[in-house]
Amino acid sequence: MSTPEKSAWPKWVRDDDSVVACTEKVKVMTENFDEIKQIAQDAFEDGLLMEVSEEQMREALHRLVDMLVNPYQKNH
């Protein structure tokens, strides 16, 4: 099964809305998101092949993102 064409990732910004312009940082973010997208696509397809409902797979992947923890959270 082919996957849709790679979508452009967003322009990365800091909390103060300034743009992250460092080429190396943007490159790392692009590589990370390309890798995450492929892993998520593989898991999604595996679930569908095992007859898990598409809706449940999408909900589970959304929950996974919601469970991510920010270890660098600033205390206000």
Rank of each mutant, 00 (worst) to 15 (best):
V52L: 07
S2T: 12
E59T: 00
I39W: 10
V28G: 02
L68H: 05
D34A: 08
M29H: 05
L48H: 04
L61H: 01
V13M: 14
M67Y: 07
M57N: 00
I39K: 00
P4E: 12
A40N: 11
A8V: 11
I36E: 08
M57G: 01
A43R: 07
K6N: 07
V20R: 01
M50N: 10
V69T: 06
H62M: 13
A60I: 06
R63F: 03
I36D: 02
V65A: 13
D42G: 03
K25G: 07
R63M: 02
N75G: 11
A21Y: 06
L48E: 02
A21I: 09
F33H: 09
S18H: 06
T23C: 09
K27Q: 15
Q38F: 12
L61K: 01
I36H: 09
A43E: 05
K27H: 04
I36S: 01
A43T: 07
Q38M: 14
E35C: 04
M50K: 07
R58A: 04
W12S: 14
M57R: 04
Y72S: 14
I36N: 01
E5W: 05
W9D: 13
P4I: 03
K6C: 08
V65Q: 00
M29C: 05
I39N: 11
V65F: 07
V20P: 03
S18K: 07
K6D: 14
M50R: 03
D17R: 12
V26T: 03
E35I: 05
S7E: 09
D34N: 10
L48A: 06
N32W: 12
S7L: 06
R14S: 13
L49N: 02
